[in-house]
Design a binder for these strands. Structure first.
Length: 117
RNA sequence: GGAGUGGACCGGAUGGCCGCUGGCCGGGUUCCGAUGGGGCCGCCAUAUCGGCCUCGAAGAAGGGCCCCGGCGAGAGGAAAGUCCGGGCUCCGCAGGACACGGUGAUGGGUAACGCCCACCGGCCGUGAGGCCAGGGAAAGUGCAACAGAAAGCAGACCGCCUCGCGGGCCUCAAGCCCGCGCGGCAAGGGUGAAACGGUGAGGUAAGAGCUCACCAGCAGGCUGGGUGACCGGCUUGGCUAGGCAAACCCCACCGGGAGCAAGGUCAAACAGGGAGCAGUGGACAGGCCGGAGCACUCCGUUGCUGCGGCCAUCCCGCGGGUUGGUCCGGUCCGCGAUCGACUCCCGGGUAGACCGCUCGAGGGGCCGAGUAAUCGGCCCCCUAGAGAAAUGGCCAUCGCCUGCCCGAUUACCGUCGGGUAGGUACAGAACCCGGCUUACAGGUCCGCUCCGAAC
RNA sequence: UGGGGAAUAGUGUAACGGCAGCACGAGUGACUCUGGAUCACUUAGUCUAGGUUCAAAUCCUAGUUCCCCAG
């Protein structure tokens, strides 16, 4: 408890990292999110956001990104370490924090299992 | 009080916990960093010379990434659309004309504008007010479906009228009617979005600006007001000139192109060029150059010895051209390394990082000039700078709006208080400004108009 | 972010400013024992809102949606 910060190192921001995650072609999804996963050589998970213009205007897209970062921040210690997540919200889904808090760790665990196999 | 009209403004508030971005200060860690840093003296002073002291290869001074702590800051009126105009940056550039694009009454404002202000004209509205791409159709070319006789400058379908002929109305004449013909006319009918000024009188065979009066409108002259668009008056003329330029066009004015993903600095990796090191055919009887040793008593433009480099020659090997139907062979040309490993250097520069990047046609107040837009002076303030893109998440309380219920008041509409449910808009800086346009829950303030009532 | 373009029946496309067509489709009927093919008929449209014009799919202005290009 207590370590709920969101350091810049937790974020995927380089084009190469995104391409690596997409190139691994390992995904997990539910009716809220679609998540690409790829292992990294770090001791912590990282998150990258990809929010399409089809989800709404700039305000709606910022709302999605903020909630996704909040969901990652609040339970990033429970997420599997050493994994890069690229999160894409699904079209038609409603941005709401409680659903994301349930959805994100479940999808991340499923990705970790698939990648460790 | 109701209805309306024009303008200015606000765009929820407070608190708690957990976060994000960049700035300043302090600390930590790691990396970079040197014939370096700091101090004193040499008249003074210095990025510059010298001396001394001191810190420093056990890595200084200083700086960068990251981490911790503290302080204070952090979306808009449209940040939006990207429709105009500028600043800024790079590229281009003798000058002019054409083409293309844009704008369009007048006078101001402005860095500039297609914006703003004032005014003029037209249309709409009882009015306050609103709307107008509002130059030119008496430069030229063109267009007008359908209807209608005719759609642009003249013409005449029905029609009206004189005359002539024929017929009819009892025979003749007159008159009336019908038909035909030579003519005259454009008042009336009907069509259309639009039909060649309108009304009245005179006039006439019938009519007609044919004439006259008034009205509308046009052109010229004179004149008053206004900076001007324009408005007004007098007079003369001709009686009429149609619409469309957001059709081509003409006239006047404006416009070089691209855009911060502009542009610049540093610079991995890969590829390129150069140098070094080691490996990589031989022969030699040639020439040139370089430097070494020995000899000549010394010197050396001398001789000898052997070495290196370049050129030439021959053999060998490889590649290519040619001859040849094809290979071999002949002949000609080129090369004797390509290449790979390591080290160093060079240019351009990708990924990436940094700069551009927020103090600006900036905001607020007061005073002055101006009808106003706006401009000037003085004082005060500093107010986001991200980059797969920060400015948030959760919760509580209170506002505000709507619906429902209860109570009070009231002739009614309503108003006030309480409870409850729902809602609390449009929308997110991306180099920066000035505008325009579009979206928007709810609310505040001011000016003005019309109607009604009361005094 | 910047630049360019488009929008017409359900779909694909035409239309000098003057009646909005064509093909495929869908529906109905005829032909056939039935189906297909064929024939006839029907269906339904100018992205939205203003403006210019007598008249707008067309011209102008604003908006909406979609597509393409650069990096």
């Amino acid at each position: 408890m207590g370590d709920e910060r969101f350091l810049p190192a937790y974020r995927i921001r380089s084009r190469a990292d995104f391409q690596r995650a997409y190139g691994r072609r390992c995904t997990a999804s539910d009716n809220l999110l679609l998540v690409f996963g790829a292992p990294n050589d770090l001791s912590y998970p990282r998150i990258g956001l990809s929010v399409s213009r089809k989800l709404g205007n700039a305000v709606a897209r910022n709302r999605w990104k903020r909630l996704l970062r909040e969901a990652f921040r609040l339970n990033h210690r429970q997420l599997p370490a050493g994994i890069d997540l690229v999160v894409i919200p699904r079209q038609g889904a409603e941005p709401e924090l409680a659903g994301l808090l349930r959805s994100l760790p479940r999808l991340a665990d499923r990705l970790a299992w698939k990648l460790g196999k």
